[in-house]
Design a protein around this nucleic acid. Structure first.
Lengths: 244, 244
DNA sequence: CCTCGACCATACTGATGGGTAGCTATCCTA
DNA sequence: TAGGATAGCTACCCATCAGTATGGTCGAGG
């Protein structure tokens, strides 16, 4: 008499992106790890859409077409969910550092490669969580952990900058400030990429690296990688509109 | 027999930054606007410290040594509080655009001036609110309003870039991506400035502008604005430490 | 057939926090 | 000095939501 599990025909919403592995595969409901990963991804998507605090575990569960206790079956707390998303994102960047470590090219090119991967990671589905995981939202222990991971990446960038200055491939500069500027620009992608997906993460990262490399001030040589004309209209200014 | 207002002698905590204008000035408690502004500032400070969602109105009230209904006497909702903080921050940037509009210098220098003010605003007490006010946390109406203000600034930067490309003071580039990169780097200051106040906002902004202008790739000319030596130690790398 | 354990749902608790009702004190004006 | 406006407090309401207690279902092994 229990009407449990009688819902499938009533489902009116298509699975949207990746179908949840639950009802779809009532057989081989083995593989706990696979489901756990699905929970993490679903959480990342919801956090990305509505923010951490505006996302309830009921939301995440609903997205997976299960209930909240099921989510807790795979994860111990909401906080851990955020942390896992963070780690998933940050791991991509750490991989970029590892890949680049042994390349036999000037440090500036190694840095560029890292920054490109960095940008792609920030534009990925875990980008928001990686970038926006606030230490205020986490327990002291996890906060320390996250801070350490962020610091590791920050110092990795600074080191590449220092090496570049030493081998002559990078303009002398303050490594700390420069690293902040580069990482900040890339981190910020997570804020607007959600709404403007006209470019891929890789394209954005490449465009940013081009800006960083060349700088705004014109070089002595010719103008690289850009159209030359553009003297069409002379900057109309709409009378200081207060913008709605 | 009412023990109201009998607390002053029991106050064990010094006023920290700016003393709340309540108990301190029991006379001329005129000037509602002044108190309202104090509420906004207190909110900004608390949001800055703990984030919007982790700050309760009781916290803000406590910081002012009043109670929650008093806060509601000056403000209609928590959401409005955030919005006001946002506007206070953004207004500094709009002022920068106005100041610069009529300068008779190349567009790149006008852009630099705006960016310096931008950086200072982000490092100010309203920086966090301005940068982090999420549309998900606000009603649709205020969300639209905030988006419009952000868009106005974004397009202001893009226009300066376009003008710079046209008058030859800026390297040809994609205005949209370049504006995103510049604004992102500066916005991100709000994330780390809280913890590292070794520099003033103006100093940070100046350092960032220097990076943006020159770019990473060495110029043909001499090396500007940086120490020349620095070949001290050859980039020790601590065996891929997982950082705690 | 019967039990065990993995898995998941229903239905609850407890705390937090935005927001309000209504009373009180103080000041200004008449 | 009465009466209204200003300004602030105590005490409360109630929606939300993280997390849990409990129990039901199903496949697998005996």
């Amino acid at each position: 008499m229990n009407s449990r599990r009688a819902s499938p025909p009533a489902a009116g919403k298509q699975p949207e992106t990746a179908a949840s592995p639950w009802r779809a595969s009532r057989e081989r409901l083995r593989d706990r790890a696979l489901k756990r990963e699905a929970v993490i991804r679903a959480a990342a998507r919801e956090f990305n859409r509505k923010g951490y605090h505006n996302t309830s575990l009921d939301d995440i569960a609903a997205r997976l077409e299960v209930t909240k206790p099921t989510v807790y079956y795979y994860v111990t707390s909401k906080e851990q969910l955020l942390f896992q998303c963070f780690v998933a994102g940050v791991e991509q960047i750490r991989a970029a550092f590892r890949d680049v470590r042994h390349l036999e090219v000037p440090a500036r090119e190694r840095l560029n490669a890292v920054l490109r991967h960095y940008g792609e990671a920030v534009a990925s589905e875990f980008g928001w969580c990686m970038v926006r995981a606030e230490d205020q939202d986490l327990s002291p222990a996890m906060s320390r952990h996250i801070k350490a991971l962020k610091s590791e990446i920050d110092h990795g960038i600074r080191r590449l900058i220092r090496e570049g200055v030493q081998d002559g491939s990078i303009q002398p500069c303050d490594p700390k400030m420069t690293a902040f500027a580069l990482a900040g620009a890339l981190n910020w992608i997570a804020h607007w990429y959600r709404e403007d997906q006209s470019l891929t993460g890789a394209q954005i990262a490449a465009a940013f690296v081009a800006v960083f490399e060349g700088g705004l001030r014109p070089r002595a040589g010719a103008a690289p990688l850009a159209v030359r004309r553009g003297t069409r209209r002379r900057a109309r200014r709409p009378a200081q509109a207060v913008a709605r």
